[in-house]
Nucleic acid binder design. Structure first.
Lengths: 194, 194
DNA sequence: GACGTTTTCTAGCAGCGCTAGGAACACGAG
DNA sequence: CTCGTGTTCCTAGCGCTGCTAGAAAACGTC
């Protein structure tokens, strides 16, 4: 039994090695640089081993996305913890979310832009995804009615996502980002000055 | 001079033929199906003629995007014309925008998702782009202060864009779309029932 | 040390965006 | 009508992609 478990452990380690290498390569040079050949060279194995762990390149990106969601959830939690009051929490979460997208664009793309068959808005979604959404929910719920909290969080999330992606692709000017965030938070939290 | 002009006209016609073929192929089978070989076959020319009109595949997509913006602007204008009152206009524009994205996903991607080097938020942006944004602006301005109209429109646009893309990629459930739209319009127009 | 099983690699497929170089065409002059 | 000339267009091919079949190597067992 020990041999079996050792092999399984080694497989799991190598799987993580692939995910980490893909993530680092993507963050350093963008997803276009993450080819199966390049990735194989990076982990010092040949191409086909990638396919013994993942169905294809998309599945690798999905795994990277799950890891990224865990990171995002952590950052959002810290932002919320460091903010006093309902409006400040919402603003902090909004700023942290868009900063994350701007700071790690490749990772963000894998999480929320790239077409990927991860279950999202369902109970069987991976835990990190639900955690990240939960952080948003915790910030939005106080400015919502009880029954609309989930939907309002989704709407707020969509607005942040739109701002992040449109800005990154040059469709929105960056210099006004802070002011747009303020307008958004105003509309969701009400114009009350904290 | 007539020969020269005839040739220029024929070139312009063929250019439009390429753009139209690319757009129809993308809408029918998705952008993955729009390969330069396939597109060349579609217009009954060889591959290199594409490169005598456009710098590359991305430039073709950009041209399709500009066409698409003209369509979107038209639809938004009609939606606004058919709506009475500030809130109804905003709701109609929001519904029309997201419906456009859902009905013509490939076209929408070329316009707003795909990385493409079109000047967007500048005076030298192509007219159809400015027209489409102008329609949004006309709907948002009445619920805004004078100096914030542009920024608030950008923010509203981002929210619509986020809803459209997250929903299309399966990250937001479709069944609640109408309710999310209503929440969004509420937050921007105020909860006044028209 | 020889045998199965499992793991890993070499080599290759079909397709991609894009381009160099020559063939084929339309044109204006005699 | 014929002949150069200049432009237009196509054939062929480059280097790359994601992915996979089948051979080779490493491993555990007897």
């Amino acid at each position: 039994m020990t041999i079996q478990t050792r092999r399984e452990r080694e497989r799991a380690e190598r799987r993580q090695l692939i995910v980490t290498a893909a993530r680092e390569l993507a963050e350093a040079e963008g997803w276009d640089a993450v080819t199966t050949r390049r990735l194989a060279a990076e982990i010092e194995y040949s191409q086909p081993v990638l396919y013994s762990h993942f169905k294809g390149k998309d599945a690798i990106m999905a795994a990277v996305a799950v890891d990224g969601c865990a990171d995002l959830a952590t950052e959002l939690r810290q932002a919320r913890a460091g903010a006093d009051g309902v409006r400040a929490s919402l603003a902090a979460v909004a700023r942290t979310y868009t900063a994350f997208a701007r700071r790690r664009p490749a990772l963000y793309d894998a999480m929320f832009t790239h077409l990927v068959d991860l279950p999202f808005a369902t109970p069987e979604a991976p835990a990190p995804l639900r955690d990240a959404f939960g952080e948003l929910l915790a910030a939005v719920a106080p400015v919502s009615t009880e029954e609309d909290a989930g939907l309002l969080t989704e709407t707020f999330w969509a607005a942040l996502h739109g701002l992040a992606t449109l800005m990154r692709s040059g469709r929105l000017p960056e210099w006004a980002h802070e002011r747009r965030l303020e307008l958004l938070v105003d509309r969701f939290a009400g114009p009350t000055r904290d």
